[in-house]
């Protein structure tokens, strides 16, 4: 059970935050940028193609070795969390990350919206949250 990485994608599909929680999950910077923009487009396409009325896009991608959970805010910012296939309560965890984002990123006067997130306090709090989540899951 573990959490691999967190991505935050802005509403135009740019990667604004990327953090790996384990060494194994590290990918190339170019690859993560590519992942962000591909996910952004797939998400938009899925939303239009879906037969389900009121579909908001892809929420979960299941693979053999990982699960990718996506949470989209009302403003179009997307939070992606790559986790172990057995991890549970990920939507709640994403909700908490969104909370941290709105506190430590949006209330920070030195952050410019839609730009890359460089906020020490956000880093620290995300780190702490993941650590606590993993402890609880043990």
């Amino acid at each position: 059970m573990s959490v691999y990485s967190l991505y935050v994608i802005n509403k135009s599909g740019g990667l604004i935050y990327n953090r790996d929680f384990t060494e194994a999950a590290r990918v190339d910077t170019n690859d993560s940028l590519r992942l962000a923009s591909i996910w952004h487009s797939l998400h938009a396409i899925a939303q239009q193609l879906s037969p389900v009325p009121g579909c908001t896009g892809i929420e979960l991608l299941e693979a053999d070795t990982f699960n990718l959970h996506c949470f989209q805010t009302l403003t179009g910012t997307k939070f992606l969390l790559v986790v172990d296939p057995h991890a549970s309560f990920i939507p709640a965890l994403l909700q908490r990350i969104y909370e941290l984002y709105s506190d430590y990123v949006m209330k920070n006067p030195f952050y410019e919206t839609e730009q890359v997130i460089k906020c020490e306090l956000f880093d620290e709090n995300v780190e702490q949250l993941i650590r606590r989540y993993l402890q609880q899951a043990m």
């Binding site: 506190d103 430590y104 209330k107 006067p109 030195f110 460089k118 906020c119 306090l121």
Partner: peptide, 9 residues
């Protein structure tokens, strides 16, 4: 509480 001051400031 919510403000991270960047290095340049």
């Amino acid at each position: 509480r919510y403000i991270s001051v960047p290095r340049s400031y």
